[in-house]
Structure formats: structure tokens, C-alpha cells
């Protein structure tokens, strides 16, 4: 057991996978000599060499497309989008190509790539370094989209992602990179891509979250606990596959559900969870399913006053929890 930050967990897991399997390569902007803008690949080029730790031109479409071709031909590429926002130019390769190749080749070809994307707000990244893109990719059959938020989950799920035979979008919330620390068990454990995880057991209301919002919900749940309200917190750490079994079980347990996400509310991942509960667990509900999400803005504002107001925080999450509990 070792305590690590989220970013250390990404670094260590990637390094271990590079040591385990010499077919693993990484392609990205500044991943080599610079060691990545978040230091995720610090020391990699020295240990594994420039053939496996590949500094790419600033060409996201080709970073993903080259990874796809290299994967079909026999390597295990990790494509790094320096910021999730930068994946927009690669959208065609991800959605039209990577997601469809197994289907269009009759299951004979597969694309074992991981596309890593630091995402989310809270670091004053402003309009092009802060966005939530999970809903775009989670909409696409053929992709897996996971959002682990603790060092242990990152470790276990990144191992699974690299060893998975299909394309995985691996989202790492950048505001949690150094802020979130936790224990990581020793050994080569994996966590499957799919199951959600109950991070806090409670009986009065159920709250669903992932990324930075998971940690803010856990913080708010502590506050509510002191007020005598027992909050159940589900970490929806995989959006595709989405774990209907856990989501519905926890909804039926309390009958009161809140989904918190920082993406803007309309058509976000929370809408899908909300619909699932409404369709499948309606008879167990004691209140309308509620959502707390980001505002309908095309992007996250830069200045601290507006960015802070943009993101749900532990205070307004607690307020929403109280509203739901009192319903």
C-alpha cells in the first residue's frame, strides 16, 4: 500500500505497463522530452526511448489516426490529448474510425488504444483547457468511456484500459491531479471498466457523481451527515458501459436521487442516469430525480469569480442535498 496523488497514479501505472509490455507506446504533444505538461510521462523517454515515447506534431487527428493504424497492425498505443478540449480535431478519427472498426470488420479487427484526456474545470484554464467532453464520447457505441477519480481506481482502471482490446477514452480530471490523494494497494490488481462504486454508504438520499464533483459530493455528504442526513454517494466511474445494476440498486435503496456533474446540464451524462432511474426505478422513487450541473455556457470562464460560480461546489451541493432530503 502506498499513498499517491491522482497524477502519480497515472504516471506509475503507465510506467508499469510500459515495463510489462513492450508493445505499449504513447503518442502525444510534449510527452517525450518535456515529460508531459502534467508530468505524466516524466522520465519515460529516458527509460523507454523515443520510439515508444513519441513527441508528436500538433496534429490531434493524426495522433489518434496513427494510433488506430498502429494498433490494428500490432502495437498497443496510448494517444494523449494534451487537454480534452484539443480532441475536437480528432473527433472524426475517434467516432467514425476507432469506434467502428470492430463492427465493420465483422469482429475480426479491433483497435486496442487508450485515448487519455485531462478534462474539467477548476484550474483557471478558461475556454479551451477546461471543458467536459464525456457526453460526446459516451454517446458512441464502440467506445468505452471511463472517469476514475481516485488513485486506486485510476491505477486499476488504467491497467484494464490498456489491456482492453477495444478503444477506451480515459478521462482524468485535471483539478484532482494533485489535490486528490489516496492509498493504492500493491500488486498488479485491475478494476473492470463498467462497475460503479459506492464510495459512501447512506440511507436517506443517493447522489451520483464522477470527477471533481465526486469529491465535492463526498465533502457535502460529510456536512449532511453532521446534520443527521445519511447520504449515499455513487461514483459513476464508467459512463460507457454504464452500470445500471448499481445505479438502480442504490436508487431503490433511498428513493431519492441527485446527479451532480460539471458539464452543462442539457444532454449531459447526468441526463442519461436520470432517464435510467426514471424508466427503471420509478416505483421506488419518493421524489423527482434531481440534477445539479454546470450552466448553459459554451465554455468555462477564466476569472476566478465566474469559474467558481460556474462549478457546483460543496456548499450548493449540500443545499441541493437538503432540498432533496426534505422533499
Amino acid at each position: 500500500m502506498a499513498e499517491k496523488s491522482n497524477v502519480q497514479a497515472v504516471h506509475d501505472t503507465l510506467r508499469d505497463e510500459f515495463r510489462r509490455d513492450d508493445r505499449v507506446i504513447i503518442l502525444g504533444e510534449d510527452v517525450g522530452v518535456r515529460g508531459g505538461v502534467f508530468r505524466v510521462t516524466d522520465g519515460f523517454i529516458e527509460e523507454f526511448g523515443p520510439d515508444r515515447v513519441i513527441d508528436m506534431p500538433l496534429a490531434e487527428s493524426a495522433i489518434v489516426g496513427v494510433a488506430i493504424g498502429a494498433a490494428i497492425a500490432g502495437l498497443v498505443p496510448i494517444a494523449e490529448m494534451q487537454f480534452a478540449d484539443f480532441s475536437a480535431p480528432a473527433f472524426e478519427q475517434i467516432v467514425d474510425e476507432a469506434a467502428r472498426i470492430r463492427y465493420r470488420s465483422n469482429g475480426q479487427w479491433n483497435v486496442p488504444i487508450v485515448i487519455r484526456m485531462p478534462w474539467g474545470a477548476g484550474v483557471h484554464g478558461a475556454l479551451y483547457h477546461s471543458q467536459s467532453l464525456e457526453a460526446f464520447y459516451a454517446h458512441v457505441p464502440g467506445l468505452k468511456v471511463v472517469v476514475p477519480s481516485t488513485p486506486k481506481d485510476i491505477t486499476g482502471m488504467l491497467r484494464s484500459a490498456i489491456r482492453d482490446p477495444d478503444p477506451v477514452i480515459f478521462l482524468e480530471h485535471k483539478a484532482t491531479y494533485r489535490a486528490v490523494k489516496g492509498d493504492v494497494p500493491d500488486g498488479d490488481f485491475t478494476i473492470p471498466l463498467g462497475p460503479a462504486d459506492v464510495k459512501r454508504d447512506g440511507t436517506d438520499i443517493t447522489v451520483y457523481a464522477y470527477g471533481l464533483m465526486l469529491h465535492r459530493c463526498l465533502e457535502a455528504a460529510e456536512t449532511l451527515g453532521r446534520e443527521g442526513i445519511s447520504v449515499d454517494v455513487v461514483d459513476v466511474r464508467s459512463l460507457r458501459p454504464l452500470d445500471s445494476e448499481t445505479i438502480l440498486r442504490e436508487a431503490r435503496k433511498t428513493g431519492k436521487c441527485l446527479i451532480v456533474y460539471e458539464d452543462n446540464r442539457l444532454f449531459g451524462a447526468g441526463a442519461e442516469i436520470c432517464a435510467m432511474i426514471a424508466e427503471e426505478a420509478f416505483d421506488s422513487l419518493d421524489a423527482p430525480v434531481m440534477r445539479l450541473a454546470g450552466p448553459e455556457s459554451p465554455a468555462t470562464p477564466f476569472n476566478k469569480i465566474q469559474e467558481d460560480a460556474f462549478l457546483p461546489n460543496a456548499d450548493n451541493i449540500a443545499t441541493k442535498m437538503r432540498e432533496l432530503a426534505a422533499y
Binding site: 489516426g65 493504424g69 498502429a70 497492425a73 502495437l75 478519427q93
Partner: peptide, 14 residues
């Protein structure tokens, strides 16, 4: 076009 380029990368690396 990038997919063929990636297949060529693997051929070179292997």
C-alpha cells in the same frame, strides 16, 4: 490516411 500511416509506423517499429 492517418490509419495507413499508423500501420506503417508499426511495420517500422516491429
Amino acid at each position: 490516411i492517418p490509419i495507413a500511416t499508423g500501420a506503417a509506423l508499426t511495420a517500422k517499429q516491429l
